[in-house]
């Protein structure tokens, strides 16, 4: 770190306006011609810092406060201690929502990363149509999750195209979104289908940093495709793995749009997640205190898993 200080790449002193003139103690540039950034003192950021603190952290802390009350969204409330959390633990439906959340989060994490990486590897260099294919695979990412979910809802409909295709093969139609054993998988498919393109782009960016010469040298030395991937490609794209997996885990844990649009949490709670339960309890059933407790729990789960995931993908070299 210290070795780089004062090198031509170190622009900090220039930005700070403290570079001395050669052979003299006077500043190289006069006070009059200093760039505006010279005035960039810490207190310039104060309004933004205050706004973030007030709007984000204080508001979140305020929401957490209600997790220990029985507020119904209107009128007075009483402190109920940990009752809301006790109720969460004792309610099988909410435990089911937690399980669904974890299933979707980790299923989403694995599906998007595995498929996204395979797509990135396939479309990295040699294929002539790779630019067109990249666009096609990335396109779902720019669409609204709700719009995508409603299209898939039509596909999964009992009289929809998917059952039509099954019918060609003489198979019985299925109620994809109303079958408790299939509905959660259907939600996972829609989530992964829409987001895999994003993961592919992250991995493509990572793969661009892998020197082709090293791979070629390894290939000349007789290393198999798998060994080249294992020992050259994967270590080189470790930062991409960390970013993609963290983003997908968080996105999976807070899944909401797709569930609401496809199943509304049904049938009978089979696809409810913590996020949909937060919405339902807070805004549909007016249990603001209980909804805040669920939201707090979801936040803590996301925090814990994010930290664990960061630790797991940390570059130890």
């Amino acid at each position: 770190m210290t070795a780089t200080m004062g090198t031509p790449q170190d622009t900090g002193a220039v930005v700070r306006g403290t570079v001395p003139a050669a052979g003299g103690g006077r500043p190289a540039r006069s006070r009059r011609s200093r760039p505006l950034i010279t005035y960039g003192r810490w207190w310039w950021a104060l309004p933004a810092v205050l706004a973030v603190l007030l709007i984000h952290y204080v508001a979140t802390a305020g929401g957490a406060f209600y997790a220990f009350t029985d507020w119904t969204g209107i009128g007075d409330f009483d402190f109920v201690g940990l009752d809301n959390f006790r109720r969460i633990v004792e309610d099988p439906a909410l435990i089911g929502s937690l399980e669904n959340t974890l299933f979707l989060a980790f299923g989403f994490l694995i599906a998007t990363n595995v498929v996204g990486l395979l797509l990135a590897l396939a479309l990295n260099r040699t294929l002539r149509t790779r630019y067109l294919l990249r666009v096609l695979f990335f396109m779902p990412v720019v669409l609204s999750p709700l719009a995508v979910s409603y299209i898939w809802k039509f596909i999964f409909d009992f009289k929809g195209p998917l059952n039509g295709v099954l019918g060609w093969f003489g198979m019985a139609p299925k109620t994809w979104l109303a079958d408790p054993t299939l509905a959660l998988w259907a939600v996972l498919v829609v989530m992964a289908w829409q987001t895999t393109g994003m993961v592919m782009v992250i991995y493509l960016a990572g793969l661009a940093t892998v020197p082709a010469e090293i791979e070629e040298a390894a290939a000349l030395d007789g290393a198999s495709t798998w060994r080249r991937f294992q020992h050259i490609t994967l270590p080189s794209i470790r930062p991409s793995v960390a970013i993609a997996s963290t983003l997908m885990l968080i996105q999976g844990l807070r899944v909401f749009d797709q569930v609401m649009a496809l199943t509304g949490g049904g049938p009978a709670g089979a696809t409810e997640t913590l996020a949909t339960q937060v919405y339902k309890e807070t805004f549909a059933l007016s249990n603001f205190g209980f909804g805040a407790a669920l939201a707090l729990l979801l936040t803590l789960i996301m925090l814990v898993f994010s930290v664990l995931q960061q630790a797991a993908t940390k570059d130890r070299s």
Binding site: T175, A178, D179, G266, P267, A268, A270, S286
Partner: peptide
């Protein structure tokens, strides 16, 4: 007394139709 009662009835019947519970 609260919207949760109707919600429990509604989702419960939905489950009966889907073969749950």
């Amino acid at each position: 007394p609260n919207p949760g009662v109707y919600d429990a009835l509604s989702t419960g019947v939905q489950g009966l139709l889907a073969g749950q519970g």
